[in-house]
Write a protein that binds this DNA or RNA. Structure first.
Lengths: 204, 204
DNA sequence: CTTCTATTGTACCGATCGGTCACCACGATA
DNA sequence: TATCGTGGTGACCGATCGGTACAATAGAAG
């Protein structure tokens, strides 16, 4: 679906063949974008923060928007992958919701800058790529929707309107604004607390 | 405390008279900022969209950031004013939460562009003004916190961790991303649905 | 008719925007 | 030695950035 167009010959065969320099650029750019917004950060700033000159920077990236796209998709894809693994592994609907909740909060907490960009800078992407990212968001929401539907068929949950699911996910997504990354343990606690909120609303 | 600047129209006991041209500029700018982000919109674009030349535009505003500040504070101040009125008028904790919920969703829905900017473009403000706006957010959260505390003392609610309240408010705030002003459900319906979510989590 | 104030258009400022360019340093291989 | 691929430099491009200067316009008052 989402082809990672890195550089000419970079990572076609092996999946983890992204140059460490590019990785560093992605991290630095994510921090800057999270701080001042995509349009508020110039390539000059990224150049200085990474210690690379303009030319060297553009050797590792193809465009500034390319950078944004990679940042917004990286951990959202992970979220989907992990979410599907949880859905496959956990059969109890209640425990599945709890696991999804913890995983979501921990990912947001551990990659706060990237998730901030992912949730807040969608508008800066051009049409095609924005549609790709919103597609990822839909895919992730579908994982939760299926978890709730499973609980419904098993008689544990009551029907949940999609607007309520959107709201509940917004509860997680909006946390980038007030969350302070203190560690995964803290994030897990919040995940558990939010899971209670969800379960209180979807349980029979 | 935070009401020194101009607010759209003088229907709320605001003595200041705002020129209709400035009002138009604020509306147009809010739409543009919501669409492409504060830093992504140039004053040239605002100039063209309003039909005013650069000089004429700067006769009505003092700076681009001034515009952003007014947009972010206008309806957040209204939210606080209305919220306090609701808190004073409604003594039943459950009904107070429902009223707050409906009012919040209706304000977000009716002024979607402005609220989008308010929730998403905070980082573009300079320190002093950003602190002022985050202060407004805190003030608004305090209104909800007092509503929950009131329900607690009346024996209707159980204690609610502040992190849960932040999450529940995020459920509302994040809705700017998927809300459609003329969507299948009206804002009051969504407000009621969200109120149920809140009440399911705070009720004894 | 002046004279004033309120509003507007246009040319312009220095700075910065995203992106490209020719050129270069260096290790590996032949 | 010569060649090549990888990674890097820094000047440079046209366009646009937020903001200013200033003359021109209009309408009401005198």
């Amino acid at each position: 679906m989402n082809e990672q167009m890195t550089r000419p010959q970079a990572d076609k065969g092996d999946g983890r063949k992204v140059s460490p320099t590019r990785l560093k650029v992605l991290q630095v750019a994510a921090n800057l974008f999270a701080d001042r917004g995509y349009s508020g950060v110039g390539v000059n700033e990224i150049s200085e923060a990474t210690g690379l000159g303009r030319g060297a920077l553009y050797y590792h990236i193809s465009s500034k928007e390319d950078l944004l796209y990679d940042i917004t998709t990286a951990y959202m894809s992970d979220l989907i992958t992990d979410g599907r693994a949880i859905a496959d592994a956990e059969t109890d609907p209640v425990e599945r919701v709890r696991a999804l909740s913890r995983a979501l909060m921990m990912t947001i907490s551990e990659h706060l800058s990237e998730m901030t960009v992912c949730f807040r800078e969608l508008h800066a992407l051009t049409d095609e790529r924005r549609r790709a990212v919103t597609g990822l968001h839909s895919d992730y929401q579908a994982i939760w929707a299926m978890a709730l539907a499973d609980g419904l068929t098993k008689g544990v949950f009551k029907p949940t309107p999609s607007v309520v699911l959107k709201g509940l996910l917004g509860m997680y997504f909006y946390s980038f604004l007030w969350l302070t990354p203190r560690g995964p343990q803290n994030a897990a606690d919040i995940g558990n607390a939010f899971a209670d909120v969800v379960l209180n609303s979807v349980r029979k």
